[in-house]
Amino acid sequence: MSEQITLNRQIVHQFIEQCWNQKNLNRSEQLLSPDYVDHAYQPANQAGLIAILEQLSRSFPDHQQQILQTVAEADRVVVQLRFRATHLGEFRGIAPTGQTVDVAVYRMYRLAQGRIAEHWALFDTAGLFQQLQVSLDGQKACQR
């Protein structure tokens, strides 16, 4: 594995640990490129990412993402994660249930010049709603 691929993996792991798990949003300034594009959240930039991190921290204050697998090639890094949390705040109009959730997440990152330039995500929203014991409503499920 090339040094650059190894470095890319490390940057993504740092980002997940420091920004998502430790909720240190200031680190995003150093880990994301100035022209960062987020294909999962709105707005499709750093502000959208910060907004979802803040929302998840209010809804699931103990949320953690455990990295299960990482695949890296060239400028791309894909991670398979487990999102574990307790629903203690309103989420997409759903009042806190106190339920513990364990949900699959897949993220792909493109890196450029030692920073994360793009992000895509697949989150098992149906699994989350099932664990919260609420019906899957298209409007709630499709919000970014």
Rank of each mutant, 00 (worst) to 15 (best):
H13N: 10
V37F: 10
E73P: 08
M108C: 14
Q10K: 06
V103S: 03
Q113T: 15
I52Y: 02
A47K: 13
I5S: 08
L136W: 00
D35C: 07
Q69H: 12
P61D: 01
L32D: 04
H63M: 11
I11M: 01
G89K: 04
L136T: 08
Q99E: 15
V105K: 09
E73A: 10
D124P: 09
P43V: 02
T125S: 04
V12F: 00
I116G: 06
R27S: 15
T86K: 09
Q18Y: 08
D38L: 02
A40C: 06
F123P: 13
A112E: 09
T97S: 13
R9N: 09
Y36S: 08
I94P: 12
P96I: 03
Y36L: 05
Q131A: 08
R76W: 04
Q22K: 11
P34H: 02
S33I: 04
I50C: 05
H39K: 01
Q66A: 12
T6Y: 06
M108I: 14
E90D: 12
L7T: 15
Q131H: 05
Y109T: 09
Q42A: 14
Y36T: 09
H13F: 05
E17T: 11
V134K: 02
V12P: 06
F129G: 02
Y109N: 09
R82T: 15
L132C: 01
R82D: 12
A95M: 12
V79H: 00
L122D: 13
A85R: 03
L25M: 08
L136A: 03
T6G: 10
L132P: 08
W20Y: 15
V37E: 07
N45M: 02
